[in-house]
Design a protein around this nucleic acid. Structure first.
Lengths: 215, 215
DNA sequence: TGACATAGTGGCTTAGTGCAACTAACATGT
DNA sequence: ACATGTTAGTTGCACTAAGCCACTATGTCA
């Protein structure tokens, strides 16, 4: 049976920039290199694959990861020098802007938020984690293009401009305000929270929330 | 390490109907039940996950499966009674209309082509194979809606009507002729083979082929 | 030569999108 | 009080893409 792991690409927004969480490896192989957080599947501890991803995130980062989405499984003889056959199931997580900062845990020397644009150029990450991170970013872009709202990133209430700015970060391009709002309205994806406004020295914005269980 | 398998949902067209290949299990567990063909990942034999799917298909069906696409990995403690932890990586294959008929191989009592509509209603398949087959059909529908041509099904040359009929089978609904052809033309996905026609007692159709490496 | 069947095209309508201009509502400075 | 600046939110318009449907084209066969 193969050496089986789960890896997690954790995405968040820092200062308006979409970033991927990288960890600096404390042990061989690839000691000192940056990579995605991950860990071995423990058949004694984990009930499901997603549960394994949750446990690994808890151990490595001290953080619970809502809205996990499985991206792909990769496996081959040569992926990992520790084993003659290495299989990894890769998950993506979106964590809210206001979320607590993950901290380095087991076997991690440091963590770092790598801006998305770093992955446009080649960099040396551990194993095949460069490709995995890229596919996590690409998958997220596609979801935004399909107007799947980034539920994991959203606070309970938000303004439409905040939502649009968030989607623009994830999609990596500017979106049209009127089109964006038309789509939200037509598909009834959000609803205003009556009488709730926020604003500075200008017109206040009406707060909205997600409509329940509608995609 | 978990008990790791690959499963394959093989799709083909029989008499114009989209079908999924099912095998009748010769051994426990679920002996006598129908399920998807699959087998254990062999780290001594398989170089990659996709290679494992190929090997399993060869052993079970005596057929080579081009155009494999990974759908998902599923795993939990309770999926398979043979093991305290079972992980399966699921692939989908499209095999051409003119392809050779798969034959029952190792540990298979019989094979059967189950029409797609059978999966609309609940039926008793082995393990969670009902859900896996459904997700293979759904993924294929989505690809057609996005006008990803079903390369695995296509002969070298074909008429546009043949292509449309094929897509209609996969999508499960009728498509508009002029829209369909406009899209093919606009995106330059196919090209006519000059001077090649086929036809019966009516206007002959111009044969086309896929344009190379364009999606 | 005309009926018939299938291939292939074009015209109309409607829906969705991007672009840009417009109005609305707030704070602030004079 | 009122002009100004800034952001919120709306509206109109042109363009594109899609579905619907009718039309023309080209073969066989009686």
């Amino acid at each position: 049976m193969p050496f089986t792991r789960v890896e997690v690409a954790v995405l968040s927004l820092l200062e308006g920039q979409l970033c991927v969480l990288l960890i600096k490896r404390k042990e061989a192989p690839h000691k000192g290199l940056w990579g995605l957080p991950g860990g071995v599947l423990r058949i004694d501890l984990d009930a499901t694959l997603e549960g394994a991803a949750q446990r690994v995130a808890q151990e490595r980062l001290g953080a619970k990861l809502p809205y996990l989405k499985q991206l792909i499984a990769v496996g081959s003889k040569t992926r990992d020098p520790r084993s003659p056959w290495a299989l990894s199931v890769v998950y993506r997580a979106l964590i809210p802007i206001t979320s607590i900062e993950p901290l380095p845990g087991k076997r991690i020397e440091a963590i770092r938020w790598a801006p998305a644009h770093e992955f446009d150029v080649d960099q040396k990450l551990a194993f095949d984690h460069q490709a995995l991170a890229r596919s996590a970013l690409a998958a997220t872009k596609i979801e935004i293009d399909e107007l799947k709202l980034p539920v994991g990133f959203l606070p309970d209430t938000f303004t439409l401009t905040e939502l649009q700015t968030l989607c623009e970060q994830l999609a990596g391009r500017a979106l049209d305000k009127s089109s964006f709002r038309r789509k939200l309205k037509d598909r009834m994806m959000v609803e205003p929270v009556e009488g709730k406004f926020v604003g500075g020295a200008n017109r206040p914005a009406l707060l909205h929330r997600l409509k329940p269980n509608l995609d």
